[in-house]
């Protein structure tokens, strides 16, 4: 391990880390928005929209992100739709993550017993009130492990965006291995940077889960 090499390439890796975090952050927010939208549509049983959501969820869950990115970045421009690489990555991540978020939210909502809804209604709470004070707090606590797992999954999935020429961590590492043969240093930095991103998220997720569980169920 040559520390001089590590020192020299560190700025490149920090820049790549920032790019990875940026893509992941926008992708996760987008995925959450899409997920909430889809879960609401499924829950409200809107006739046509519900089928569309089903089709979307199945396509998104059963195709790999790498394939989706290739299609978005290299395929769609042939139809006249040109999107730059970073937006492409965010769109791909949102498309993939949306279905995972939707499923997590849906199962959380389903896990709250119908009797909770009925009891709240019989106490005279309105639909919105029931949702806000009774159903959503419980559903969020139940869905939280799945949601945080999705967040970590999406951050990890950003590692494929190098394929559409985005200078993320994998791209930078691969380039350094290819041009300087400083494989050990590049891989060391690659692993360290991912740990710096993912370890706090993973620990924070565990903490949040326990907090929410405690607040909701008291155990």
């Amino acid at each position: 391990m040559n520390w001089a090499v590590i020192q020299a390439t560190l700025p490149t890796f920090i820049e790549a880390t920032l790019l990875t975090v940026r893509v992941a952050a926008f992708g996760i927010v987008g995925a959450l928005i899409v997920g909430i939208l889809c879960a609401t549509i499924t829950r409200a049983k809107l006739p046509v929209a519900r089928q569309l959501v089903w089709v979307y969820v199945e396509i998104s869950r059963n195709t790999p992100l790498l394939g989706q990115l290739f299609f978005l970045y290299y395929g769609l421009p042939k139809l006249g739709i040109v999107v730059d690489a970073e937006h492409c990555a965010v769109i791909g991540l949102t498309f993939l993550g949306g279905s995972f978020m939707a499923e997590a939210l849906r199962s959380g909502l389903d896990a709250v017993e119908p009797i909770q809804w009925q009891s709240a209604q019989s106490l005279g709470l309105s639909g919105v009130q029931t949702m806000r004070h009774v159903i959503l707090p419980q559903a969020t606590a139940i869905a939280m492990p799945a949601l945080t797992a999705n967040v970590i999954f999406l951050i990890k999935e950003t590692s494929v965006v190098s394929i559409i020429a985005l200078a993320d961590l994998v791209f930078v590492a691969k380039e350094q291995i290819g041009s300087d043969y400083t494989t050990a240093e590049a891989l060391f930095l690659l692993v360290s940077c991912y740990l710096v991103i993912l370890l706090p998220v993973s620990l924070g997720a565990g903490w949040l889960e326990r907090r929410l569980r405690h607040a909701t169920f008291g155990d």
Binding site: I152, K156, L187, Y194
Partner: peptide, 21 residues
């Protein structure tokens, strides 16, 4: 946790490049 937290591509790089080295 290690296997879960590391992106699969990083693991692939480690095995593919570092094992040889």
């Amino acid at each position: 946790e290690t296997m879960r937290i590391m992106p699969q591509i990083v693991l692939l790089f480690l095995v593919f490049f570092d094992l040889t080295r």
